[in-house]
Design a protein around this nucleic acid. Structure first.
Lengths: 341, 341
DNA sequence: CTGAAAGCGCTTACAG
DNA sequence: CTGAAAGCGCTTACAG
């Protein structure tokens, strides 16, 4: 059994108050007693009971993290970033998995609030369209940091990727490789990310004075390999000719490439293909897949840093800053676009 | 602000004791009051404060999970299994990442014990060779469940894959495809898993009366793609001829295949290759990779179930059962072994 | 069937 | 500089 404060106090012939104050470096305790207390505590390995401490201080040193898809490599890199940063600052992570469902997300948030987490770091589920549960967090004075999938209208701190610039980079890369008939398999109309990637695509076209052709834009609802395959097929059978393709995710790109292979269309020589997200697989497939890296681990790190910063402001100034942070993407050039132009 | 027990009691003109008992279904409270209390509580959305409850009951309804590698898809599937099962039973998961380091693992365990988790579910770090920290968990009467990477000697509940049978299946599959000169890139000598896969390999050979040739067994320390490549190269340059290859992980197999491709050695026609673990990539590469599925999600589910079962036994009989559970693997046949024999 | 009281392990205003 | 006492929000033996 771990010793209690009382036991320490008894052993040292001090009051629990004195021991507690010594441990927490109160200025009104003599240096001598502090030394005695600290060395004894170290010896017996005493640590304050977190739950008991909470009852007085209302701080649990716990962060709730909600991920929409726990098997998605991108979110795991984010989680890794969060955890590394959290550990450094003595925070504990409790993990929730919304499975892309708004209902699950809601449940998790209520659970976290009940557990009195100091903050919630999360990415919204695909599903999420109403935001009362998020406002509940804010009204509860719990710090909320949204990362990646988020809604601009929510009043909290945010970290997100500059998807528009990312889409621009991807498209421009194709243009520089000599592509002029560039298709785009975009994501669903709802999450901001896919809209922004699409806007980046359009901007790159107009910047390089290539006429936009709505027939070359198809929508992938789930962003899956299968959809990529089917969209490529649809485009091919419609007779529209292309020499470049920018896909909203790596998975969609992989599906498209699979279709092109079947039809003996060479990637990259006949069609250059680029994805988005830098998933694990892209490096191993043949041809290896060019993509846009979102720097997931950094996103996690920044989300946690935003939390820490907000926490500090909250403590000293009793208010929140609600900072927004936009991260840059990085173009990863690989075989699927390595045509000599 | 969430209401407290006291506020509920005041509003209902009852004592806090009565309200608490009603909520926890004590038999000595009238059905009528229970109804009143419960409906009121539901209306105002009261939930008992977890930390305060803990102080009395010593139950935190929290499970600590330690993963050696948080970006490894296999562990994430396990985590998914654990979480689904945990949620069903109202448990919260706090997550630790040991990064394959014994020191980190130790720290996390001490942190979890301090946080008074009800149980710890973990897979050992590659690094871990001493077990005091695990014994500390056991002595602390905290339930310990080890999954996947474990040490047989530790006195706790365990879930693991039947690696030997898995290795047997993989090797036998090659044999059935007509391979007779089968190499094995095995894992390091330390973790039990790679030893068992190796033993399965040997058993399959001897079962099918193929002479074992130690020169066909090479060791991959880290199980990486690069090592697979280098081992394949080494074997090739040594002049030893093979027509089948069983690798300790999918990554090693991928590396080997990359080398064979470079040398225009056809997989599967010249050499059949099979991996182990069913990583994401295997499905997308060309040729797609045959492998042995470890059913990670089931492993997580079972780990959590073992915990629940131990918890029940601990509560009623004040002792632990320390159950061991061995899971079966499943052969996944894909292109890398689809030679017609 | 219900309530008063003690106590889980801490922190902190207050008194000295 | 140190200690006695109250209290955070619950549960539970005990009394009635």
């Amino acid at each position: 059994m771990r010793p209690s404060l009382k036991q320490i106090a008894n052993a040292l012939n001090l009051s629990t108050a004195a021991v507690s104050k010594a441990l927490n470096d109160y200025p009104d305790i003599s240096l001598a007693t502090k030394k005695i207390v600290k060395s004894y505590v170290k010896k017996v390995g005493y640590k304050a009971n977190i739950q008991a401490t909470y009852l007085r201080t209302q701080k649990t040193m716990t962060i709730g993290v909600i991920l929409p898809d726990i098997t998605n490599h991108f979110f795991l890199e984010i989680l890794k970033g969060i955890m590394t940063q959290a550990n450094k600052n003595k925070y504990t992570i409790i993990l929730g998995h919304s499975k892309e469902s708004e209902a699950e997300e809601k449940k998790l948030i209520y659970q976290f609030l009940q557990q009195k987490v100091d903050g919630i770091l999360m990415s919204l589920a695909q599903d999420t369209s109403r935001f009362e549960h998020l406002n509940k967090v804010i009204n509860n004075k719990t710090i909320l940091v949204l990362f990646d999938k988020l809604a601009r209208t929510i009043n909290c701190s945010k970290v997100f990727v500059d998807d528009k610039k990312g889409g621009f980079k991807a498209t421009q890369h194709l243009i520089k490789k000599g592509c002029t008939k560039i298709a785009h398999f975009r994501g669903d109309l709802n999450p901001q990310n896919s809209i922004d990637r699409y806007l980046g695509y359009r901007e790159a076209l107009s910047f390089h004075e290539i006429k936009f052709d709505p027939n070359k834009v198809l929508i992938s609802r789930k962003g899956s390999v299968k959809e990529g395959y089917l969209l490529a097929k649809k485009l091919y059978e419609s007779g529209i000719k292309i020499d470049g393709l920018f896909c909203v995710t790596d998975m969609v790109a992989l599906g498209a490439i699979r279709f092109f292979k079947e039809r003996k269309i060479n990637v990259p020589n006949d069609i250059c293909v680029i994805g988005f997200s830098k998933t694990m697989v892209g490096k191993f497939v043949n041809p290896s897949l060019s993509t846009v890296d979102q720097k997931a681990s950094k996103m996690g790190k920044m989300a946690m840093k935003l939390f820490l910063s907000e926490e500090k402001i909250l403590k000293t100034e009793k208010r929140l800053e609600n900072q927004s942070l936009q991260l840059n993407t990085k173009l990863i050039k690989r075989e699927s676009t390595s045509k000599v132009s």
